[in-house]
Simulated scan of single mutants.
Amino acid sequence: MAEHTGPIGIFDSGYGGLTVFKEIAARLPQYDYIYLGDNARVPYGNRSFETVYQYTLECVNHLFDKGCHLVILACNTASAKALRTIQQQDLPKKEELRRVLGVIRPTTELVGELSLTKHVGVLATTGTVSSLSYPVEIGKFYPDLSVFQQACPMWVPLVENNEHQSPGADYFIKQGLDNLLEQSPDIDVIILGCTHYPLLINKIREYVPENTRILSQGAIVAERLEDYLLRHPEMAARCSKNGSQSFFTTESATDFDRHAAIFFGKEVRSVHLPL
């Protein structure tokens, strides 16, 4: 069966998925990974459902072509706007066993166990907020929870321009949190529903009550992926284990490498993938 094995694919519209990949690789270092960032067409957050679906499917198919049997959509917008259609319409057409998983469900499965007030906040891009994916998914597991969302459109540009540690970032971070907490001062758990936002976590903590739980997706997704592979040994057997990591971008590899280190925590060397 060795000839049928391949790396685990990790897809994001840009850099943010590297915060998820970092946690996955730390928890499951034995596997091979391919990361693909569609930087040439970022941002996805303000695009239509159909466009996000088409872009995501194209990149998922690229990862399948590179031998991946399992692909993680390490992007909230792609998970919100494309995952279900890919799972229900496209994967059944594939001859081989292939799976595509997202980052929203692992967090929503957990959040109800952490909230004492039953009031949960979600900070995300405009696209993820408008999709209502978090309220819908949380409602499936915890119908008694009240979910409050806040779009923070300036947060991603702050991170990608390496301004997230600057004093100027505080204005936009405080504004987003104030708007969220105005909806309900009883919020005691906040989900960071964008993979860029973990880089802002220290500043976020400054503007929320001390007892507020802040959930970053990376560690949660990594833990749930490990559990998934244990529960699905047939998929684990299809994932190769040489500890390798490869990076691809649809934009300039030089630009990608310079920014990627901020998210991944160490230098990377990527290859340009023309679409």
Rank of each mutant, 00 (worst) to 15 (best):
A74W: 06
F49Y: 14
K140S: 10
L101Q: 00
D227I: 05
R224A: 00
G168T: 09
S115D: 08
L145S: 05
N61E: 02
G45Q: 07
Q88L: 04
Y44H: 14
L230Y: 04
K22Q: 08
P274S: 14
V100M: 06
Q88I: 02
A2P: 06
G176V: 12
I262C: 11
A82T: 05
E113M: 12
Q150Y: 02
I34K: 05
L275W: 15
T212S: 07
F148Y: 15
N76V: 03
W155K: 10
R98T: 01
H4R: 05
N61F: 01
V111W: 01
V103Y: 00
G45P: 06
G193N: 04
K93D: 00
G121E: 11
V208G: 10
L110K: 07
N76T: 02
W155N: 07
S133G: 09
G16I: 11
Q165Y: 11
V42S: 14
L275H: 13
H232M: 07
L116V: 10
V268H: 00
P43F: 13
T107S: 02
G102I: 01
A237G: 00
P274N: 04
A40M: 14
T56G: 05
C239A: 03
F21E: 10
V159P: 11
K94C: 13
A151L: 11
Y228C: 05
L132N: 15
L275I: 14
E137T: 12
T195E: 09
Q183E: 05
A169D: 09
G176D: 09
I187M: 12
S166Y: 08
N211M: 12
G17E: 13
M154A: 14
L101A: 01
S216R: 11
I204L: 08
E109Y: 04
Y134H: 06
G176P: 09
V111C: 02
T19H: 07
R238N: 04
R213L: 13
P167M: 04
S146K: 15
K203I: 11
L97A: 14
E226A: 08
I138L: 04
M154K: 14
F141C: 08
G37Q: 13
I104K: 00
I86L: 04
D12E: 09
Q89C: 02
L101H: 01
I190N: 02
V52C: 00
L181V: 10
I262W: 12
